[in-house]
Design a protein around this nucleic acid. Structure first.
Length: 333
DNA sequence: AACCGGGCCAACCGCATTCTA
DNA sequence: GTAGAATGCGGTTGGCCCGGT
């Protein structure tokens, strides 16, 4: 595959921080003409920058729909959960955090979240409990249990993710084939909620990631309130509960229920209730996990069937099978 | 006051992927 | 089918800022 002649090597191109004058030029040009071809944009806009630099400046800074400033607790959770599922696929993660850029998320992960997970004894790369923490059952008491469970849960999701990626690749191939063999659908209401609300203009993945988003939202369980409190400090516990309550107001469905189940209920029961019966808690956790995963399956099923009228391939006649985790994971159900 | 080290983040770099002729 | 061009993406860097000594 050919590599383009690097525009950065063109003579006289400016590098480094952008001036406000350059920003103005870029903004004005894009507002008037749209960005179109990035390569030719700098010349048209009167900028001595390469197109790549312009694109980066626009997407990471100048775009009007960018939210700047501190990440909310909910955003932090989403990043952690999506990272557990997707790894360093920052653009995919950014797809599910409206108004945040991949660069910003990446920076935030590297400077904040990674360290906090490490503090929790969770390897920020694998999202598994570190051996030195899991093995060291002494001292920390119940802490290691909560940490281990959180990490085990994340590990569990990783198995799902590998299966999901396979299915995703298959669906993408099939979608492409269908697109080639059939005319585009008429404009109008989309095939269903799974398609309509979660699609991102920047996303290269649509359906399956929408499902993933929902599943990630479910994965609020992955960090238990207590484990979360350990990592994020007591002063954030209230924020956590507030956020969940706000989410319940705004979205009284699925996500809110999960958030509430995790936070408010947790808060009511005494957020860091170290004196509660551990075995009962674990049983409850297992039950919740079962419900959690089966609701994902249900959602996948319903989402797939809602769109299956246009899916004709054998590979997706059994939608659940397309997303079935490896046998070891499936056996845990 | 000066120095130092770490945190933070915008921007760069180069590879990967997608598009197009 | 292939090569070149365009764009996307993730890792890394450079420089500013701030708190500690």
């Amino acid at each position: 595959m050919g590599r383009s002649p690097c525009c950065e090597k063109e003579a006289g191109l400016k590098k480094g921080p952008w001036t406000s004058e350059e920003d103005q030029k870029l903004l004005a040009f894009i507002e008037q003409h749209g960005h179109g071809c990035w390569r030719s944009l700098p010349a048209k806009a009167g900028l001595r920058r390469c197109g790549k630099s312009c694109r980066l400046r626009w997407t990471n800074y100048l775009r009007p729909d960018i939210k700047r400033g501190k990440f909310t607790l909910q955003e932090e959770q989403t990043i952690i959960q999506l990272h557990a599922l997707l790894g360093n696929r920052w653009s995919s993660i950014a797809t599910h955090l409206p108004k945040r850029t991949d660069n910003e998320i990446k920076n935030y992960w590297n400077t904040h979240l990674k360290k906090r997970l490490a503090k929790m004894g969770i390897d920020p790369v694998t999202h598994k409990a570190r051996a030195d923490v899991v093995g060291g059952s002494s001292g920390a008491g119940n802490n290691s249990g909560a940490r281990y469970r959180a990490a085990a849960h994340l590990s569990h999701t990783a198995q799902w993710e590998s299966a999901r990626l396979e299915a995703e690749a298959r669906l993408a191939r099939e979608a492409r084939l269908r697109a080639l063999s059939s005319p585009p659908p008429p404009p109008g209401p989309g095939p269903g909620p799974a398609f309509s609300g979660l699609e991102s203009p920047t996303s290269t993945l649509s359906f399956s990631e929408s499902v993933l988003f929902a599943s990630a939202a479910h994965d609020t369980h992955a960090l238990t309130p207590r484990a979360y409190a350990e990592a994020f400090g007591a002063e954030q516990q209230q924020r956590f509960a507030d956020t969940a309550a706000a989410a319940a107001d705004a979205a009284p469905g699925f996500l809110a229920g999960v958030l509430l189940g995790c936070s408010v209920a947790g808060a009511e029961k005494g957020f860091a209730a170290s004196s509660t019966d551990a075995s009962v808690c674990e049983q409850q956790q297992e039950e919740e996990d079962k419900g959690y995963w089966s609701s994902i399956l249900n959602m996948v099923n319903s989402s797939m069937s809602s769109s299956s009228s246009s899916l004709t391939s054998d590979a997706v006649t059994d939608p659940a099978a397309a997303y079935l985790p490896p046998a070891t994971a499936a056996a845990e159900f």
